[in-house]
Amino acid sequence: MRPALTLATALASTLALSGCGTLSKLAEVGRAPAMSAITNPTADPNWRPVSMPMPRPEMAPTQVSSLWRSGSRAFFKDQRAAMVGDILTVLVNISDTANLANATGATRTGSEDAGLPNFLGLEAQLPKLISKALDTSKLISSSSTNANTGTGTIKRNETVTLRLAGTVTQVLPNGNLVVAAKQEVRVNNELRELQVSGIVRPQDIASDNTVVHDRMAEARIAYGGRGTLSDLQQPRYGQQVMDVLMPF
């Protein structure tokens, strides 16, 4: 009775947690997924300011009667993103290939024998006290054999190419920029969501105001979506609950 009650409780909890998503899907029946409104990234309840180790602040030397500013790439004005609210383009070009193969083998054999041929001259009395068939020279005998063989293979190919504009959401004390980029593309009834966030150095921003993803620290790149095709590619809620609860 208890397993059934536990399963029912788990199903009820799952339905309660997925209720909002289910209702939104029911509201979109017969319609394309609605695009989200353009919002301030820092107004998201899940947004948190980034805190990173910072060097000691140093005062920039003043240069009297100089028109050139240290760190600037343009004589008149630096066109690259530098302040909160500035826009820059993030280039994502991931092409990773991993191929790992491991094989292990281990074998061990052990044997132990123990006896009591002499024990203060009383070894002759032990068979009379315990059993007449007792052999004091072979009191304990043990043997063990262990064999282990393991093989593993990992093959992975990933290719992601993205280009989207982001906004500077924070300037760290050492001058590094926190960038957040989000883009939504809807084709028929399928909505594709692209999200990139991370920390970049102003020096790594090119003259055309672009930055490559491999120059971003703490990079978070997400490419997904929602719609009819995405829903069909995922198991249903009940199956997901059973996969978690079933021990076999």
Rank of each mutant, 00 (worst) to 15 (best):
L5G: 05
T9P: 01
T9Q: 00
A10R: 00
T22Q: 12
E28A: 13
V29S: 12
G30A: 14
P33I: 13
A34R: 14
I38G: 08
T39M: 09
N40H: 08
D44R: 11
D44Q: 11
D44V: 03
P45D: 04
P45E: 07
P45I: 09
V50P: 00
M54E: 12
P55Q: 07
P57R: 08
E58L: 13
Q63F: 12
S72L: 03
K77H: 13
A81C: 01
A82P: 05
I87K: 13
V90Y: 10
L100C: 02
N102Q: 15
A106C: 05
R108I: 08
T109R: 08
E112D: 10
E112M: 15
A114M: 12
F119H: 07
G121S: 09
A124T: 15
L129W: 10
I130E: 11
T136Y: 11
L139G: 09
N148P: 02
T149P: 01
I154Q: 11
G166V: 04
T167P: 06
V171W: 02
P173G: 13
A181N: 13
Q183K: 14
E184P: 10
V185F: 04
N188I: 14
N189H: 11
R192P: 03
R192N: 12
S197F: 00
R201H: 02
P202R: 10
Q203C: 00
I205A: 00
D214S: 03
E218P: 01
I221C: 02
A222M: 10
L229E: 07
S230N: 06
L232P: 01
V244L: 08
M246C: 06
F248E: 03
